[in-house]
């Protein structure tokens, strides 16, 4: 199918402090209906979106982190996390609530270069 395009969503913001992370997730869920080749990248503070153990009762904001685990059911299985971003935040793959592929900055930039559409959040 030649009409399938490679869409990459680049998540660079922490959850809750701004609305970007939640908005990106909603756009991704909608995009899933169009049967495109979708991948999600988490880099910079975006890696914090996937941190295990988020408890938002105290700030009275909906905890949307469980929704990342629903992505598999939406056939969105390409989740990439930049290694350098994890390290700069004292996090490891074990701290994340979904299965991801951890990549180096160089690998990530290569992958980004291959996309048809890159959407940044």
């Amino acid at each position: 199918m030649s009409d399938v395009k490679k869409f990459m969503f680049v998540n660079r913001k922490a959850p809750y402090g701004t609305i970007y992370a939640l908005e990106a997730l909603e756009v991704v869920l909608i995009t899933a209906a169009f049967d495109q080749d979708v991948s999600l990248v988490f880099m910079d503070d975006g890696v914090y979106q996937l941190k295990k153990g988020q408890q938002t009762k105290g700030i009275e904001i909906k905890n949307f982190s469980p929704t990342y685990r629903a992505l598999e059911g939406y056939d969105i299985e390409k989740l990439y996390v930049e290694q350098e971003s994890l390290e700069a935040r004292g996090l490891t793959e074990d701290d994340l609530l979904v299965d991801v592929t951890v990549m180096t900055r160089a690998e990530m930039s290569e992958l980004m270069d291959q996309q048809d559409v890159v959407l940044s959040f």
Binding site: Y16, K52, T56, K57, G58
Partner: peptide, 9 residues
């Protein structure tokens, strides 16, 4: 509460 929300307490 902001720490807890982010899973970092």
């Amino acid at each position: 509460p902001d720490l807890a929300a982010r899973g970092l307490s």
